[in-house]
């Protein structure tokens, strides 16, 4: 098996309490509800979904910033959920995260040098000053910043530059897996392409495995090898990036795909959009059965809507949640 990361039926629930003195559990938010997937070494998995679908909770669970309620996170064969906290600390450097907001993800009181050297020291704790200086400058050059700016503070850089620094910090401990949580959605279009190029180049050069989280399908399509679409805590469709974009089966994926505006007036004018009804459901009160049914344009009965959908491999490597309200002609897959 060359799977580097395996998620096995991950569930992350948050209990909801009510009551002033004696707290009673009144409900559960199933932020991540049974997600299984695997990543090969060097692969880029795009994770798509709207706000509240659990993609950020899933990434925090993989990072063990949030304990999983059930399931296993296997990183290179080790189950991270069972590691003691001291062993986990040592393991952390193998998984690093890039956050969305380059203004919040860097400590405003630390220079670029101290931010990066701190991260390098987690892997190489006994470096001398000279070596550290050299490593920091190499790192800064790798991500396209001039090393002469290493004594500057985050607020002296632009958004794109800060995101570069954040990427450098994530790369500093020489991780094997990078989780990028909406790394470009806070950036301008012209800066966005610079950062995407950088990420692609680095994953290739360093043979990194990456989970790329975004709500922007056009970005995900460009960068990922495989794509997983999440809806209310579950993966509803997963497969090869090309297949999933050219030939999506789940109506949610279709709707996402058709919601992406195309910068071409002709296409836009002639195109027939699948506009979904309503908003994504709230995970506090999920609808019974299939969470997508009430937004789906496909005809289905109330009874059918209350059935659960099942994730099936309809083609090698292409998984879809099969349910009357999610795919055309669902019986063919049953």
């Amino acid at each position: 098996m060359d799977d580097y990361l395996i998620l096995d039926n991950i569930k992350t629930y948050f209990p909801v309490y009510k009551g002033l003195i004696r707290k009673k559990q009144v409900g559960i938010v199933k932020a991540v509800d049974g997600v299984s997937l695997s990543l090969r070494k060097g692969e880029i998995l795009g994770l798509v979904g709207e706000s509240g679908c659990g993609k950020t909770t899933l990434s925090r669970t993989i990072m063990q910033l949030q304990p999983a309620t059930a399931g296993r996170v296997l990183l290179d064969g080790k189950n991270l959920c069972e590691l003691s906290s001291s062993k986990m600390k040592a393991e952390r450097i193998n998984v690093q995260m890039i956050f969305q907001d380059p203004y919040a993800s860097l400590n405003p009181r630390m220079t670029v040098y101290s931010t990066l050297s701190e991260a390098i020291a987690t892997r190489y704790p006994n470096l001398g000053r000279r070596d550290m200086l050299e490593r920091v400058s190499t790192l800064m050059k790798t991500i396209g910043l001039n090393p002469s700016q290493m004594k500057k503070y985050p607020h002296e850089f632009s958004g794109g530059q800060r995101q570069r620094i954040a990427i450098a910090r994530a790369l500093a401990p020489e991780p094997k897996l990078i989780i990028a949580d909406e790394p470009v959605s806070a950036l301008d279009v012209s800066i966005q392409s610079q950062i995407l190029n950088l990420l692609l180049r680095l994953t290739k050069e360093m043979n990194l495995t990456m989970i790329f989280i975004s709500h922007d399908l056009s970005v995900v399509k460009y960068i990922s090898d495989r794509i997983a679409v999440m809806y209310l805590g579950k993966i509803v469709e997963m497969g090869d990036a090309e297949t999933l974009m050219e030939n999506p089966l789940h109506y949610y994926t279709k709707a996402l795909n058709s919601a992406v505006p195309v910068p071409d007036p002709d296409i836009e004018r002639s195109r027939c959009r699948i506009v979904l009804q309503g908003d994504p459901p709230s995970p506090i009160k999920p609808p019974k059965g299939c969470a997508f049914a009430y937004r789906s344009p496909l005809p289905h009965t109330q009874e059918e809507a209350e059935q659960e959908g099942h994730l099936k491999e309809v083609r090698p490597g292409h998984w879809v949640e099969v349910h009357p309200a999610t795919v055309d002609d669902y019986r063919q897959y049953a």
Binding site: M63, R92, M97, T122
Partner: peptide, 14 residues
């Protein structure tokens, strides 16, 4: 809850 503190946690700092 700031991301830079989370980043420090994920570096495994004490």
């Amino acid at each position: 809850k700031q991301e830079f503190v989370e980043a420090a946690v994920s570096l495994g700092l004490s």
